[in-house]
Write a protein that binds this DNA or RNA. Structure first.
Lengths: 202, 202
DNA sequence: TATTATCCGTACCAATGAGTACGGTTAGAG
DNA sequence: CTCTAACCGTACTCATTGGTACGGATAATA
């Protein structure tokens, strides 16, 4: 198997692992099932990813990587603050609430007590990576006078709180389905308006 | 074993189950271990609680019950709005972020895919039970003119979002320890101030 | 004191799943 | 074309754990 083939095969396996994770959860996903669905052998899985945790670490890392790029661009345009805020909020909700992300977060949470590092990896590749971009964005607008001076980290957290509410928890608990695009946009709009009400200079 | 003894014994077992859940998580907690710690027999556990899920359903229900009473009183006094908001927020944070509550939420989340009803029970006994009290509280203050008219349910969710931020998720992921009382109070104060900034009539 | 129901501890069963080993096959390298 | 390395499928080991069975002890009750 040559290199491009291996990469493609690897991604195929990670796709299948992600799908299985969404359907059955971490505990409910056996290596055998992933192998069967991927028409791969357990031995290959273990050779490539070490063990079960390693496989899902790879899932988390790849998922995070595909995200990272989206946000960096999102927050670095020079548009007015409100539309950017709305676009960013929508993208963030879309991303944090979709089935794959929820499955990944559930996996990380359910393995916390098993001494697994999944949660650390998820945090490092997720929040730790994107939040600074958002904070810088807020600082830029503070300096340009569009936002009143304040601790940008705290302001960022306020926006996140207004945006998410307890949606993520309720998704994690399986109490609500993925919101429709329309609801998401509406929510992002409202959160942005509220945020500007608190922090805007107008 | 007479009745009061049984009740006390039952609570003792639920305490131990809760502690074990905090330490090891749902998956990491075996019925054998609970039995051993409680100096009980597995057979008694199964006789009293049906199965593993039944045991932890009982844990959730008892925990929720002990909470419910706190909030009802909290929100029905006639004090000014801000101190009540701060007190309620502090109590809520204290309650949602402590080790036991986090362990319970982790358990419910990790069992979602297994078709367990733990999450439904948690929601019914938790959010569904306390949120209406808070909404009524907001409505009362709207009618008395202390709060500007608005959808009280939406306002309630905003307060929750401002209050929690992503603290709960980070606690669930094991990324941060339980906040100190002082931080909690400070956070409740800030969230209340922000909320009144958005919704207060003054 | 005798009786009976409950509970404890231990042993047991069946199922599951992580991780390993291996023979057969395929596909790329020389 | 041959050879070799990687991969697939299957089978196997081993540990864990949910759930059940049972004998002996214990405490309430008559």
């Amino acid at each position: 198997m040559n290199d491009p083939q291996r990469i493609s095969r690897r991604n195929e396996i990670l796709d299948i692992a992600t799908g299985t994770l969404s359907e059955k959860g971490y505990r409910g996903t056996s290596m055998l099932e992933v192998a069967r669905r991927a028409s791969a052998s357990k031995e290959t899985l273990y050779a490539w990813f070490g063990d079960k945790q390693g496989l899902f670490e790879a899932v988390i890392r790849r998922n995070a990587q595909s995200v990272q790029t989206v946000f960096a661009a999102q927050l670095e345009n020079e548009a007015a603050i409100e539309p950017t805020l709305v676009a960013f909020g929508s993208a963030l909700l879309e991303l944090l609430l979709d089935d794959h992300a929820i499955a990944i977060n559930r996996a990380a949470i359910s393995e916390v007590n098993m001494g697994s590092g999944l949660a650390q990896i998820l945090s490092a590749a997720g929040r730790e990576e994107t939040l600074p971009h958002f904070i810088l964005f807020l600082e830029r607008h503070q300096q340009s006078g569009k936002l009143r001076p304040a601790d940008p980290a705290q302001a960022a957290e306020e926006y996140l709180g207004l945006l998410m509410g307890d949606l993520q928890i309720r998704r994690l608990l399986g109490l609500i389905p993925m919101p429709k695009k329309k609801e998401i946009r509406q929510r992002a709009k409202r959160a942005s308006a509220r945020f500007l009400h608190l922090h805007g200079s107008a």
